[in-house]
Design a protein around this nucleic acid. Structure first.
Length: 406
DNA sequence: AGGACCGGGATCTGCCATACTT
DNA sequence: AAGTATGGCAGATCCCGGTCCT
């Protein structure tokens, strides 16, 4: 802690000194493009002074640069600052090469801004390395955007965590007005504060979508509900979003295709499909189209080979749609594992929630139960669908007095 | 009390393509 | 033509515990 804050302080001091020292070089390099290029930040007095002083030099430089090198060179002082901040410049260059060539940037302001919000030097470096354009945002912009995020988050540290996880979500859009409208729009969906909070935590990109894009998805979902004969299409998007927070960062094309896949694969009626989508089916709507179809085909094949009928497959998926979330190989291994452990396909179809647990977990439990001679035919398979705590308590009891409990 | 039933919570970015700006 | 803003894609589950039922 002491170490990190010290190194941050040193960084700031260094940067301040450095910024002053290298500014002349920077203006020299950058000014060739446009003296009035960055109205967004407004030029600070030092900059203006440097500008006047160096205009002559620059115009010479500009002629040379334009005739020989069509591509503008990278901004040396920016590179220096980034290095000083611990930014992975190589990564930054690979991601957004244009940013490194910009004449005027705000890396120092950004650094201090994020630091004032509690971000460590390392976190800030990571953010800029992964989303270099962050460095082009002005202080006013940053403060405004932060304020908007704070409408949903209670603390700065929550926001820092999210930005550290996904710098792009915060910095990709420069349109604060759009963000404000998005918050208003999403709030108007009757998503409660908790859902809104979860939405921004889990899928922060949603808030950088254009308002139109979010609206399009919501309208699309309303249409789906209406088409299926739902009674209150206005409630439907809310239900889907709160069950699947990723839905708004998917394309309507993808969601539509998945809905079609579910309908045709399971031969669902309108009301069956609607019930599925309003329930746990929402969880699998954002899977990639091929993945969902592949998983369904594989499951159908596997179950058929194990003697199941179409109705069994439908029953299993309707009561536990998340089985389609599991990759084909994993799911087959899991089923084999259960069957090898003495559980029938019929039991699985009736209690598909076992499939929610990891293969490793299932295997371990099956082994433990086997050592005490647990009879699944007699006692059912619900033991497998319980929390670790409950399972261990159950095991304890069984090993103390096996006959009583079985 | 013990088990069955059920819903909720965590988690999910980083890259590419393209349209738009300047 | 460079740079920016935005849309879209692939990737791939597991676990806990409240509450109702018997």
């Amino acid at each position: 802690m002491v170490h990190s804050s010290t190194s941050s302080d040193i960084t700031v001091i260094f940067l301040s000194l450095k910024m002053a020292a290298v500014h002349a070089v920077r203006v020299l390099v950058g000014l060739c493009h446009s003296v009035a290029l960055q109205p967004r930040f407004g030029l600070i007095p030092v900059q203006l002074a440097s500008t006047c002083l160096l205009r002559r030099l620059c115009s010479i430089n500009a002629k040379r640069t334009e005739s020989k090198l069509p591509v503008c060179p990278e901004n040396e002082s920016l590179l220096e600052n980034l290095n000083l901040m611990g930014v992975d410049v190589k990564m930054a260059r690979q991601r957004q090469p244009g940013v490194l060539r910009k004449a005027f940037t705000n890396e120092q302001g950004l650094f201090q801004f994020l630091q004032s919000k509690g971000a460590s030097r390392k976190v800030i470096a990571g953010i800029i390395s992964r989303y270099p354009r962050a460095v082009t945002r002005s202080i006013e912009h940053l403060e405004q955007r932060w304020g908007l995020w704070r409408k949903i988050f209670k603390t700065d540290s929550e926001i820092v965590t999210i930005i550290d996880r996904s710098p792009e979500s915060f910095f990709r859009s420069s349109d604060n007005e759009n963000l404000e409208k998005n918050i208003a729009f999403l709030s108007s969906l009757e998503l409660n504060t908790k859902d809104l909070h979860r939405l921004l935590t889990t899928a922060p990109r949603t808030f950088s979508n254009s308002l139109q894009l979010n609206k399009r998805m919501v309208e699309f979902l309303e249409d789906v509900c209406a088409e299926l004969g739902g009674k209150n299409p206005e409630q439907f998007p809310k239900a889907v979003i709160s069950k699947n927070l990723y839905i708004l960062i998917r394309s309507t094309k993808r969601v539509r295709k998945n809905i079609d896949t579910l309908r045709s694969s399971l031969k669902l009626s309108d009301s069956e499909l609607l019930a599925l989508l309003e329930g746990h089916g929402a969880n699998i709507l954002d899977l990639s189209n091929e993945y969902l179809q592949r998983n369904f085909n594989s499951l159908r094949q596997k179950m058929t080979s194990l003697g199941c009928r179409k109705a069994d497959i439908k029953q299993l998926i309707l009561s536990c749609p998340s089985v389609l979330y599991t990759g084909q190989d994993t799911l087959c291994i899991k089923l084999d594992c259960l069957i090898k452990g003495g559980i029938t396909m019929k039991q699985i179809v009736e209690k598909p929630k076992v499939l929610d647990y990891s293969t490793q977990n299932i295997t371990e439990r099956l082994e433990k139960l086997q050592t005490i001679g647990y009879d699944f035919q007699k006692n059912g398979i619900n033991v497998l669908d319980s929390s670790k705590k409950r399972f261990l308590a159950k095991m304890e009891k069984l090993s103390v007095s096996p006959d009583d409990s079985m």
